[in-house]
């Protein structure tokens, strides 16, 4: 029986791919690397101000730690390739999920926006208009504007028909 001979040959070789024994020393080294990266991510996030690079750096360190765990603790490096394929395809789906959702949520309203002015120009224009606002004091021009200011609100509620609409 050819098949039995084949399986016994792989056993005689020692390690079959499903039973690769990762040495304890290597596991401890990987653990040391994980601790080092944890300390590194805490220090870079709390002691250094990297601005926009804070998040990418933290994610890069987390990804490196995950790679160590997947390759050595989960033994994917020594494992059947089909498991790696499964893992990579799953990872691709996560990236597609994240990227295409952010394509939507990050750019909402942008596609239909045909304004000739940029957002900065719009903001500058709003600020210029706000700077020109004379305020309540500046709007008082007629003598009637200066009378009965204290009970103006009270008389408004009893007399103004627009209040009903507002309420």
């Amino acid at each position: 029986m050819a098949y039995d001979v084949h399986t016994q040959e792989t056993h005689a070789d020692g390690d079959h791919h499903g039973h690769h024994i990762i040495p304890q020393g290597l596991l401890l080294k990987v653990f040391g690397g994980l601790i080092f990266l944890t300390v590194l991510t805490v220090l870079t996030a709390t002691q250094m101000d990297l601005g926009i690079f804070d998040v990418p750096l933290a994610l890069a360190i987390a990804a490196s730690k995950s790679a160590l765990v997947v390759m050595f603790f989960m033994a994917l490096k020594y494992d059947n390739r089909v498991n790696t394929l499964t893992f990579v395809v799953g990872g691709i789906f996560v990236i597609v999920f994240l990227t295409f959702t952010l394509f939507d949520t990050l750019f909402r309203g942008d596609i239909g926006n045909v304004d000739r002015m940029t957002v900065e120009e719009r903001t500058a224009q709003e600020e210029a208009l706000r700077a020109r606002d004379p305020g309540e004091e500046g709007l008082r021009i007629a003598p009637a504007d200066f009378q009965n200011q204290e009970d103006a609100a009270a008389s408004d509620t009893t007399e103004s028909p627009s209040d009903d609409a507002a309420n």
Binding site: T7, N80, V82, T86, F93, V94, F97
Partner: peptide, 26 residues
């Protein structure tokens, strides 16, 4: 070995569903 590999592949498939569960929250 074949039995072990089949069980392991099944576990990896389950773990992908776990990762996708959490990826929704991420």
């Amino acid at each position: 070995d074949q039995q072990f590999d089949a069980a392991k592949l099944g576990m990896w498939l389950f773990l992908i569903t776990e990762i996708l569960l959490f990826s929704g929250m991420f």
